[in-house]
Design a protein around this nucleic acid. Structure first.
Lengths: 156, 156
DNA sequence: ATTGAAAATAGGCACGT
DNA sequence: ACGTGCCTATTTTCAAT
């Protein structure tokens, strides 16, 4: 994980479809060398995938909400997590240090869908309470933060 | 935005580097036709970009936190938003219906960086209070939700 | 359908350990 | 001598018109 790897990662985060040839030009190597590096970055779990970024409204998911989950004392977190995972409307799920021990980011087409989702969440064993906040607008989302010199693990 | 477009969108959300040739195989068209469709989806703002998905820990961003922002009555939201946007640690920013009218998702290398960030946030004119919650783990994030029949706007 | 470009693969050279 | 990282060269596949 040297400076060149970091540049490659930054370029691919900004545009995930950048060709190896183009990456090679940017970092001053040949395409096969870059390809080697990208393959290693993928194998080492630095790059875990590639996604097209889609405008949620354009695909009929106009409503975004954040939902906090408060469990009761009997809560089985394996069970809760499995049940949450099965709900496709939940795009992100964080386990938090707080009373609301999960926070979900969900997207649905209509308010009625959100209402149904909240009821389903409330029905999960171990869930004592939910708290929902509607997002009025998304200022920005998943903005790639350029990765600098400090690497985390020192990838072998 | 027909069934084929939706399939293409779903495939590209699952793997943003899928080639036009591969997409063509999957949807039963030729590569140029698929390319036309993808170009249109990009022009119409359905697909807004492509990103490599990176393990934050692997690039030295091991700490994720959610921060709620409570403004005071004098708050100038244009100003606040600009100031927030200038902070690269803020990966997402939602404007919410609630007392905490912004929620930020931030990533930093170390706790000390989070502390500094919180102080910087508190120093923004119009910010009365911040509330920070550390994420203990990310169960999943940005999971693409397969887009079905209901389209939002009816793209020309 | 045709041309040009890029990806994938194999083999070899140089460097540092 | 071995592992690593980069290059060249070739074939196949893909992109673009």
């Amino acid at each position: 994980m040297d400076e060149i790897d970091r540049t490659i990662v930054n370029l691919l985060r900004a545009d995930g479809r950048t060709s190896y040839a183009e990456l090679a030009r940017r970092v001053g190597l040949t395409a096969p060398s870059v390809q080697d590096r990208v393959t290693k970055l993928e194998k080492n779990g630095v790059i875990t995938g590639y996604q097209a970024v889609v405008d949620p409204e354009a695909v009929g998911l106009g409503i975004t909400a954040l939902i906090g989950i408060i469990p009761d004392s009997s809560a089985d977190h394996i069970e809760i997590c499995d049940r949450l995972r099965a709900m496709t409307e939940i795009e992100s799920c964080y386990f938090l240090a707080g009373v609301e021990c999960y926070q979900l980011k969900v997207r649905v087409p209509k308010m009625a869908d959100l209402e149904r989702l909240i009821h389903r969440l409330g029905g999960i064993p171990g869930v004592a309470q939910t708290r929902t906040t509607i997002t009025l607008s998304t200022k920005w989302e998943d903005r790639p933060q350029p990765v600098g010199a400090e690497d985390g693990r020192g990838i072998d």
